[in-house]
Simulated assay, not measured.
Amino acid sequence: MRTFANVQELKEAVGETLGPTEWRTVTQEQVNTFADATDDHQWIHVDPERAKESPFGGTIAHGFLTLSLLPSFMTQLMSVGEIEMAVNFGLNKVRFAKPVPVGSRVRATGQIVSVKNSPAGQLAELKVSVELEGERRAVCVAEALLLYVAKA
């Protein structure tokens, strides 16, 4: 993990690549819990027997489940000191390039794209790539926005 003393130090690191994070296994229990939370119970995610006959050969994680791992990955990629809080501000662009089979392992890298002044604080953009173990192509690429609010 890269630790930045403050937002100014983060600004000076624009262009830097962070990571990778630790590998994380995507489990069927996790997929089922996500399906319950989002009411997305499509069989390709939650029916292992039926999914064996699919082109994927088994169940796959929801794309949005993969995306929802970003906050956890971010805490492994970096921390910023001298702030009151960091808030997920949004996403500019997201692509799900490949499915994530249940039981596989994923990890992330990030690149600091920009850090700009905002009325509410400092807005950082990170390009986060989630990779699947054994694959060269990322399974998810997202331009994540984080708002850093200075201590009062």
Rank of each mutant, 00 (worst) to 15 (best):
P48D: 01
P48L: 07
P48S: 02
R50M: 07
A51L: 03
A51P: 02
K52M: 08
E53A: 10
S54H: 07
S54E: 05
P55V: 08
F56G: 00
F56K: 03
F56T: 08
G58F: 12
T59F: 05
T59D: 09
I60F: 12
I60Y: 03
I60G: 01
H62P: 04
H62N: 00
G63R: 10
G63C: 11
G63Y: 15
F64C: 04
F64V: 09
F64R: 03
L65Q: 02
L65R: 04
L65W: 00
T66N: 04
L67Q: 00
S68H: 08
S68A: 14
L69W: 14
L70T: 10
L70D: 02
P71Y: 09
S72E: 15
F73Y: 14
F73S: 06
M74Y: 05
M74C: 11
T75Q: 11
T75D: 14
T75Y: 08
Q76W: 03
L77H: 12
S79D: 12
V80H: 00
V80N: 01
G81F: 15
G81K: 04
G81T: 08
E82G: 14
E82I: 06
E82P: 04
E82F: 15
I83F: 00
I83C: 01
M85D: 02
M85L: 15
A86V: 12
V87S: 08
F89I: 09
L91P: 01
L91M: 11
L91H: 07
L91I: 14
N92F: 08
N92W: 12
K93T: 13
K93G: 10
V94S: 05
V94W: 14
F96L: 15
F96C: 03
A97K: 10
K98T: 01
P99K: 08
V100W: 01
P101H: 09
P101Q: 09
P101I: 12
V102Q: 00
V102H: 07
V102W: 10
G103N: 05
S104R: 06
V106K: 00
V106F: 04
R107G: 00
R107V: 04
A108M: 08
T109W: 05
T109S: 09
T109Y: 11
G110H: 10
G110A: 14
G110F: 15
Q111G: 06
Q111N: 06
Q111T: 11
I112C: 05
I112R: 01
I112W: 04
I112A: 06
V113Q: 01
V113R: 06
V113N: 07
V113D: 07
V115T: 07
K116M: 00
N117A: 05
N117Y: 03
S118H: 13
P119N: 07
P119V: 09
G121C: 08
L123T: 04
E125Q: 11
L126I: 13
L126V: 09
K127Q: 12
K127G: 03
K127F: 13
K127P: 01
